[in-house]
Amino acid sequence: MDLETVKDRAGPRAFSPADDLPQEYREAATRMIEFHANSEIMGAYLERPFIRQAPSIDRKLAFSAKVQDEIGHGQLLYRAAESLGVKSREQMLADLANGDGKFLNCFHYPMESWVETPMIAFFVDGAAMRRQATLRRTSWEPYAHAMDKVCFEEGFHVKHGEDILQELMTGSRKERQLTQEAFEKWWPRIIQFFGPTDDDSTHHDFAASVGLKQKSNDELRNAFLDQYIPKARNYGLEIPDEPRIRERDDGTYEVEEGDLDWDEFFAIAKNEYEPGRDQIGGRRAAQEAVQWVRETIDETIARGHAPRAAD
């Protein structure tokens, strides 16, 4: 299939591994899905310490279940990416470890306190879900199938994150204050989650033209603000003065882009932001530390000694 045919036929779930697709499509889809998969892993990495620090057994359980789900989403997404035939899961995980793999801006920032957890678990996950819901109509069928399961599970993450926010914002004065401070710190990053305005986005045009991407950055950011500004206010959070956000007459929002730190954003996009590098390094160490297990299992299989292999 040549690129023009791909563009003509690019509808929801239009292409599967049975199709002979041009390299441009395969590479663009791989880049997009790999980014998504990496983000699941690095998000889980960021949230993992709060399984332990959660202030009750039930919160601990929910956090563990959430982190588990995110790893499960990584599993689904790496497979959807792998099925394009460009990179194996092992290569993608190796690239994530060595700093070549890219992932969402928000997961490059350190998270130090429980009051920050709803910033990820409610707002970032809420933002991610806005985007993921549209990706159920992506043109790469395995990606769309992964999104079916991700969207099914993700509602729990958003509701749990919201429940934590609700608990904090109905808690002590100190809790409310710390949560507001955390919100102010994370809000600009969350706005940047959707990337720069459409004019500056390099990959969008192609990804949209072959049906991989269903909505533009601006459309998604609007949809997010529309839904989550009222939610934030509902729980008593005050929207920070910056970045300035104006509501247009048609109900959409205009974000004053100059109020956001794009130097930091693009440093992050290149994996050059220092705290993010620490997180990449920490996860790499963890991955390398269990390399011996994978090797042991591979050797066992190679020697044909796998116990109960016939089961």
Binding site: I41, R48, I51, I57, K60, A65, Q68, G74, Y78
Partner: peptide
Amino acid sequence: TEWQVRAPSLESDLALANNAQDELGHA
């Protein structure tokens, strides 16, 4: 739970996380 996001593979990560939740639920 220390093994979450640290297990030898994504699949084994999920499995051990499940055991952790089981034990915590039992607690």
